[in-house]
Measured scan of single mutants.
Amino acid sequence: MALNTPQITPTKKITVRAIGEELPRGDYQRCPQCDMLFSLPEINSHQSAYCPRCQAKIRDGRDWSLTRLAAMAFTMLLLMPFAWGEPLLHIWLLGIRIDANVMQGIWQMTKQGDAITGSMVFFCVIGAPLILVTSIAYLWFGNRLGMNLRPVLLMLERLKEWVMLDIYLVGIGVASIKVQDYAHIQAGVGLFSFVALVILTTVTLSHLNVEELWERFYPQRPATRRDEKLRVCLGCHFTGYPDQRGRCPRCHIPLRLRRRHSLQKCWAALLASIVLLLPANLLPISIIYLNGGRQEDTILSGIMSLASSNIAVAGIVFIASILVPFTKVIVMFTLLLSIHFKCQQGLRTRILLLRMVTWIGRWSMLDLFVISLTMSLINRDQILAFTMGPAAFYFGAAVILTILAVEWLDSRLLWDAHESGNARFDD
């Protein structure tokens, strides 16, 4: 018995066209964080690309023209004298008006014999932002004059995390709450300039795509075929072959399989920071003279006294001054041990922890910024005066060393310790 099946006739004509040209192939790229070699397709503007294995951002879609970056830099340069030299806060102490600005706080630190601690604050609040705007201006002028731009481009990517104007702005709020127990506070004209400078700096850093600047100024022929001998440069993120001198053909720094002496430098910085954190938390970090009496505060006791007036601000200072430094030390110690013992479990967790400490590390400088600003506000000789204690130097040095330890660690070593050939990683 035959089955009668109805015929289905399409209502619209289906047209099949042959592909007349070869589909576009992607360029081969190595991930600078996990060293995976993959094919990167062509990316349009405002599109980002991520590593298929570790999800690290390979290409950032946010990109401004150099002219727009230069305009932002010149605007920031105009704001800087007002943000640093004009009063941020006014207080009335014992019937006398006192003005506080950024430069005055750094000068008070240096004047009291601790120039190293003052230079830490100076670099993060004044030096690094000033280098940022002058570097962008150098790129703008240098591109037109045919100057060598490689050193500036190499420095810009590392400079971003040292620009800490946003953290200093939080420190202004913390210092205001600490001082309000002794005097009446009012915002100064410099505060508005400083807030504007923070906003412009944040926007500029978020749109400063150094890798795209490398592509514009020093374009290189990408690798179009897969080759395990391809290496990625950690300076400019170019994937290719080393030249005859073993250097990256684009930025001219040595092109090595792994960062040289990464573990040794990381261990040295980490152990030194552990040693410095002990006096930083045991010795007094601030000293207040009130009517001839002397009151010393460690980091913890200062947080407890701050909690009596504002528990939320005390929580912020606790996280930045105690929780973050010790968390960074514990995480980095764990990561280094996992590399030495070739741990194969929990790779995803370790990668996330490394990215976390990379982002939060700079916030530990908050305590030094609060001390710097408070020193310029309260300084009335023996009637009422505020000065920093010996722990300030140890704390600042420990924070900087932990930042350097994270920067010096080559994250690809975590993958080397893991089993080879993993296309995915999980716990």
Rank of each mutant, 00 (worst) to 15 (best):
A2C: 09
A2E: 04
N4K: 10
N4D: 05
P6T: 04
T9V: 06
T9Q: 09
T15W: 10
I19A: 07
G20V: 07
G20W: 05
E22S: 08
E22D: 04
E22M: 08
D27N: 10
D27T: 09
D27W: 08
C34H: 00
D35E: 05
L37A: 08
L37Q: 09
F38D: 03
F38A: 04
S39K: 06
P41S: 05
E42Q: 06
I43H: 08
I43E: 09
Q47C: 04
S48P: 03
A49D: 10
Y50R: 06
P52W: 05
R53S: 07
R53H: 07
I58N: 05
G61I: 09
G61Y: 12
G61F: 12
D63F: 15
S65A: 04
S65F: 04
F74K: 12
M76C: 02
M76R: 02
M76E: 03
L79E: 03
L79R: 00
F82G: 05
G85F: 04
G85L: 04
L88S: 04
W92P: 01
L93G: 01
L94W: 02
G95S: 15
G95T: 02
R97E: 03
R97F: 03
R97T: 15
R97I: 13
Q104V: 07
Q104E: 05
I106Q: 04
W107T: 13
W107F: 15
G113I: 14
A115H: 04
I116Q: 15
G118I: 01
G118Y: 01
V121E: 14
V125F: 11
V125E: 04
I126Y: 15
G127I: 02
A128F: 00
A128K: 00
P129M: 08
L130W: 14
L130D: 02
T134N: 12
S135V: 02
I136G: 03
A137T: 05
G142K: 01
R144G: 08
L145F: 12
R150L: 03
L153P: 02
L153S: 09
L154M: 04
M155Q: 14
M155L: 07
M155P: 04
E157L: 15
R158G: 10
L159W: 01
L159P: 01
V163A: 04
L169C: 10
S176W: 06
I177S: 05
K178T: 01
K178S: 02
V179H: 04
V179C: 11
V179I: 08
D181W: 01
D181A: 02
A183T: 04
I185R: 01
G188T: 07
F192S: 08
S193I: 02
V198N: 14
I199T: 14
L205E: 14
L205P: 07
L205M: 14
H207A: 15
L208I: 15
E212H: 15
W214K: 02
E215H: 14
R216G: 12
Y218S: 12
P222M: 15
A223M: 14
R226F: 14
C233E: 00
C233M: 00
C233R: 00
C236H: 00
C236P: 00
G240F: 09
R245T: 10
R245Q: 12
R245E: 12
G246D: 14
C248I: 00
P249M: 14
C251V: 00
R258V: 07
H261G: 08
S262I: 03
K265I: 03
C266A: 11
C266Y: 01
L270C: 14
A272P: 02
A272I: 03
I274E: 12
L276C: 12
L277E: 09
L278M: 14
L278H: 11
N281F: 03
L282W: 14
S286M: 02
I287W: 04
I287F: 03
I287G: 03
Y289E: 01
N291Q: 10
N291E: 02
T298F: 07
T298C: 15
G302R: 00
A307R: 14
N310H: 02
N310A: 10
G315W: 15
I316P: 15
F318E: 01
A320E: 00
S321L: 00
I330Q: 09
I330K: 09
F333L: 11
L335F: 06
L335I: 09
L335R: 01
L336N: 09
L337Q: 10
S338V: 15
I339M: 13
H340M: 09
H340W: 11
Q344H: 11
Q344D: 15
L354V: 14
W359K: 13
I360Q: 04
W363C: 03
M365G: 03
L368H: 03
L368V: 10
V370M: 01
S372E: 10
S372N: 08
T374E: 00
M375Y: 02
S376P: 02
I378C: 01
T387D: 02
M388F: 04
G389N: 01
A391T: 02
A392V: 03
A392C: 05
Y394E: 03
A397D: 08
A397T: 05
I400H: 09
L401S: 11
T402K: 07
T402R: 00
E407F: 10
W408H: 06
W415V: 07
D416M: 09
A417G: 09
H418E: 14
H418S: 14
E419H: 13
R424L: 11
R424K: 13
F425K: 14
F425A: 15
D426H: 13
